[in-house]
């Protein structure tokens, strides 16, 4: 069982006016088999948490720890974190001109597994993953995210999630900008991943809509760079009814 443990995490970014603190002591434990939803208003630091765990160079961890099964994640390079079993589905996937999806997926799979996938089963796996996310097989010949619609980019992220099959998946606003059909397709992909039983999911979202399709075991409300309140799925229902008003007032006191 994989366990991602985040302890007292403080993160800042450099700005023109010096460093700006964004995360102010985040504590979170995601055990295998659990789905956690992090919800919060804009600017509360949700995405910063996701990118800090993945190791984006823009974010400076000033204190705290992140471990995956006891291993120090913060000490690893971005690619080492991925090979250790972390996956970040990005809110704004990046275009890589001239690199085909097929080449990209095979290169990533080879890096993660430490050996090239078996050709025959791999082609079948890729085609199935694409089909499961309602993407044509010819996406394999297109350049990574180039000319993809917003929904295609998000579905492509989930194709990668299913093929690379990490220990813990962090989904950064994967639901934003999706129409209802795409939301359902993407959610089904996440549920297939989570349904393997031993996988951890950290679902970051602004809206409650996706929680109709993906059932979280735990809901954390994120305000001003830390977890303001935790609970079960009922907390999401309360947010659906009342919004973030209560937490923003509390944060502003």
């Amino acid at each position: 069982m994989a366990t991602l443990e985040i302890r007292d995490l403080h993160v800042s970014v450099d700005t023109e006016n010096g460093p700006k603190q964004i995360l102010r002591g985040v504590d979170l434990t995601i055990a295998g088999g659990q789905t956690h939803a992090i919800m919060g208003p804009n600017g509360s630091g949700k995405s910063t948490l996701a990118y800090s765990i993945a190791g984006h160079p823009k974010y400076n961890v000033t204190s705290g720890t992140v471990t995956l099964d006891g291993e120090d994640v913060l000490d690893m390079s971005v690619d080492e974190r991925a090979r250790a079993g972390l996956f970040l589905a990005m809110q704004y996937p990046v275009e890589v001109p001239g690199v085909s999806v097929a080449n990209f997926l095979r290169t990533a799979k080879t890096a993660i597994d430490g050996e090239a996938p078996k050709l025959r089963t791999w082609v079948k796996d890729v085609n199935k993953a694409l089909a499961d996310l309602d993407m044509d097989a010819d996406f394999g010949t297109r350049n990574v995210n180039e000319g993809f619609s917003g929904g295609e980019k998000k579905r492509h992220e989930i194709v990668q999630l299913e093929l690379l099959n990490p220990k813990v998946a962090i989904l950064d606003e994967t639901d934003s900008g999706l129409d209802i059909d795409a939301l359902r397709i993407v959610s089904e992909g996440v549920n297939r991943f989570a349904g393997q039983g031993d996988k951890g999911v950290l679902l970051i979202t602004h809206y409650t809509r996706i929680l109709r399709y993906i059932k979280p075991d735990f809901v954390h409300v994120f305000v001003d760079g830390r977890v303001a309140e935790e609970g079960g799925p009922e907390l999401a229902e309360e947010l659906e009814a009342n919004g973030y008003e209560r937490f923003l007032k509390a944060g502003a006191k």
């Binding site: 390079s77 991925a82 890589v96 990533a108």
Partner: peptide
């Protein structure tokens, strides 16, 4: 950002750079 994206999929930095440059010339 291209480098980060590729590395976040497990691809080591030098291989990621090669991929981006070969993509540029492709």
């Amino acid at each position: 950002e291209q480098l980060f994206y590729l590395q976040a999929r497990g691809i080591p930095e030098d291989a990621a750079r090669r991929l981006v440059v070969s993509g540029f010339f492709n």
